[in-house]
Design a protein around this nucleic acid. Structure first.
Lengths: 148, 148
DNA sequence: CTGCATGCAAAATATTTGCAACAGC
DNA sequence: GCTGTTGCAAATATTTTGCATGCAG
């Protein structure tokens, strides 16, 4: 899925298809969502020697090309995920630090409201909601791991 | 509003009331939402010489005390805002970079759904939704400022 | 006085940029 | 071969930590 469209999009802009770009995009697809650092690690597992700088630059490029996006899940770590892969809303637990994904359908009501009342078009794939997950709510005294 | 409760909360924990802590909390109240850097600037305007390190430590402390929280609005900049001040949901425009605030009421439907279907308790004050604001949607060709 | 807080500087992290070498087309 | 890309290293930016001094209680 990724390779062919990547080549096409790049060519349409006069840009070049390189091994690094294929690897980064592939890594984003496989990881689901990951920080630049995690993407770098994944890429390095296959092809050592790919520089972290290139990962940053490539992620930026891929985002510009509309192939990936990023959201701000925990602390200062932007996490990237592929566009076209199943869109999902991230639920980040502030207690245990876990990230779960739910269908963007839960946002349909909200996005309609924001559109009507504020003219704001929500980017569904970019949404991260913070709170406390079911597991941590049960474990009332749960101290969590202090994530975020 | 801030000062008295700050003193009380600090004392209840055996911590000390200092000028810096008052200034930082005050700055957060006045700024609405701001990054550590912005808080530092605001504080410095009143009392020069307050170290950025202290701002970080104080924001962390105030958050622990439940007096402020932070959300991840744009890029890697956590923005802090006072708890107790009117809670609001942040709408961040990816085109013009503007941040607007809407009533948390728009989330009532959503939070109810997430609670029922996933047992997830959303932290309303921590929510930031990314998308495109009304103004930028109208200005179709709007190139934006590339924020985030 | 006693110990928590602060300031300063340096370390640890995260991200960006300049430039020469390299590779896709 | 021309030009976009990459790697490396250094510059920036951001946040954290160690330690001696200072001040609230």
């Amino acid at each position: 899925v990724s390779d062919s469209s990547l080549a096409a999009v790049l060519r349409s802009r006069g840009l070049r298809l390189t091994a690094q770009r294929q690897l980064v995009l592939e890594a984003v697809y496989e990881l689901g969502h990951a920080t630049p650092d995690q993407v770098h690690a994944k890429v390095s597992a296959t092809a050592a020697g790919v520089n972290i700088t290139t990962v940053y630059r490539t992620l930026e490029l891929l985002e510009e090309l509309g192939l990936v996006t990023h959201a701000h899940l925990s602390h200062g770590a932007p996490t990237f995920h592929a566009v076209g892969a199943d869109q999902h809303v991230h639920l980040v637990c502030r207690s245990c630090g876990g990230v779960s994904e739910v269908s963007p359908g839960v946002l349909s009501q909200l996005s309609a409201t924001l559109d009507m009342e504020h003219g704001f078009l929500v980017d569904i794939g970019h949404v991260a909601l913070f709170g406390v997950c079911a597991r941590c709510r049960k474990a009332a005294g749960c101290e969590g791991d202090g994530n975020d």
